[in-house]
């Protein structure tokens, strides 16, 4: 269900600031909502998102229940070499959802 999607240019110039858009399908259950039967729907959110570029952290987002369902996050990175851009979303249940892209710097 938690399908991650990332969008960034495939190519950039050295030093260029690149915009990265990410989204993952997730209900982000806040733990405050009740079901039709009145039972509290337990909290289950993506509590952490991180992006690594060339193996180094570029951006981290620590999320709380006040973040909307299907977390959509846009951030930037400075192009400094061709290589892998990795994305990780950590669920409350411990699951880590991953995606990756390649950025070519010329």
């Amino acid at each position: 269900m938690a399908r991650p999607r990332v969008r960034l240019p495939s190519q950039a110039k050295p030093g260029e600031i690149v915009e990265v858009r990410t989204m993952i399908d997730h209900p982000m259950d806040s733990g405050l909502r009740k079901s039709e039967t009145g039972a509290v729907i337990p909290r289950k959110i993506i509590n952490r998102f991180e992006c690594l570029y060339l193996g180094e952290p570029v951006f981290v987002a620590e999320l709380q229940p006040s973040v909307s369902a299907d977390p959509y996050i846009v951030f930037h990175l400075r192009a400094r070499g061709s290589g892998k851009v990795e994305f990780r979303w950590t669920d409350d249940d411990g699951t880590v959802y991953r995606d990756e892209a390649t950025l070519t710097v010329v």
Partner: peptide
């Protein structure tokens, strides 16, 4: 508390977008 973004020089630009409740 809604969220915290952690940045460093590799981020290049201190700007981020998110959707909140």
């Amino acid at each position: 508390q809604v969220c915290t973004f952690r940045l460093n020089p590799n981020t290049g630009k201190a700007e981020a977008t998110i959707r909140i409740r």
